[in-house]
Amino acid sequence: MNIFRFLGDMSHILSFVILLLKITQGKSAAGISLRTQELYMIVFCSRYLDLFWNFSSLYNSFLKVVFIACSSAIVYIIRFKSPQKDTWNPELDNFPIQYLIGPCAVAGLLINQDWTPFEMIWAFSIYLEAVAILPQLFLLQKQGEVENLTSHYVAALGAYRGLYLMNWVYRYFTEDDYLQRIVWFAGTVQTGLYIDFFYHYYQSKRGGLSRPVKLP
């Protein structure tokens, strides 16, 4: 465990807290992509199947359960709970996620570590996580202006990815047996998707002002 990895995980947890606060306290899921949240739920449920047979640390196992529970709770609230379910707009949040899930499933079957069923599912979850933010980014793009909490949510997720990238670099140079090409490739793609958002986030938050983020 290094500081980048730890801060990355904390920033990931922070993103869940921000989103849960926004939809429970604000009673609205406006601006939040249920599609993206459903993709994250699929990602965590498939990747953490190994909760039942792999144990590396209490920290890991605990966070795996937290991630599955938080993403499920978010999907449940937006899809089924009043009044939040009436604030979700399916016409705006209509990214065709089958075009993300399908290719990721094929990639998982073809490109994985050792051709076992779990390695295929695991690789699928890595590929899907890389693109899971796309419906959210498209939704923000359509709206043009991003509410503060929503922008903090996306920023926390972006920070998590950036910190994981630094964690990989750190581990590569400090550990003898540390090589994971699939994760590095997908993670770099994923981090890249946030670059444009971060530019606009920085533009609207600099100078201590808390203006909403405007996207062109």
Partner: peptide, 10 residues
Amino acid sequence: KKKKAGKDEL
């Protein structure tokens, strides 16, 4: 030569 890492990340 480096070997593949185990699954100790989230």
